[in-house]
Simulated scan of single mutants.
Amino acid sequence: MLLNASEIEQFDRDGYISPVSVLKNDEVAGLRDQLETVEARQHGALYPEQRSKSYLLFKWLHDLVQDPRILDPVAQLIGSDILLWNTLFWIKEAGSNSFVSWHQDTKYWGLSSDQVITAWIALSDAGIDEGCMRVMPGTHRGEVLSHEDSYHDDNMLTRGQEINLEDKEMEAVYMPLKAGEMSIHNYRLAHASGPNIAADRRIGISMHFMPPDTRQIVGNWDCAMLVRGQDIYSNFESTPIPACDFDPEAVAFHKKASKAVNEVLYKGAAVNDAKL
Rank of each mutant, 00 (worst) to 15 (best):
A199E: 07
N220E: 06
N262A: 13
S146E: 13
M170S: 12
V135A: 00
P176E: 06
A250W: 03
W90A: 02
K59H: 14
M136P: 01
L226G: 03
H62C: 08
G204I: 00
N220C: 08
D26M: 11
V22N: 08
N25D: 10
E49R: 05
H152E: 15
S21K: 14
L64C: 03
I232F: 13
N186G: 06
E130K: 09
H62N: 11
K59V: 07
K255N: 09
S183G: 05
L276S: 04
D129V: 11
K255R: 01
A122G: 02
L189Y: 12
M225D: 15
S150V: 14
E162A: 09
Q104R: 04
E171L: 15
G127Q: 10
S54Y: 05
A199W: 00
A199M: 00
R134N: 04
L177F: 07
I197V: 13
E263R: 15
L56C: 07
A122M: 07
M156S: 09
Y108R: 05
S193M: 10
Q230T: 04
P240V: 03
D67V: 03
Q34M: 08
A75K: 12
Q161L: 15
I8T: 15
L83E: 02
N155S: 11
N186I: 01
F11T: 09
E39A: 13
G30W: 02
I121A: 01
Y16K: 06
Q115L: 10
N25G: 01
V116T: 02
A199Q: 04
R41S: 12
Q161E: 14
D125R: 03
K24T: 04
K255C: 10
L56R: 09
T37A: 07
E166M: 12
E162K: 04
L189V: 04
W85V: 05
W90K: 08
P68C: 02
M156R: 11
A40P: 02
S98G: 06
S146M: 12
N4H: 04
Y187S: 08
M207A: 07
K275C: 11
I82P: 14
D213N: 15
W102H: 15
L111I: 12
Q76E: 08
G131F: 05
E166V: 03
A252Q: 12
N86R: 12
I217K: 09
A94L: 11
N164S: 04
D222G: 15
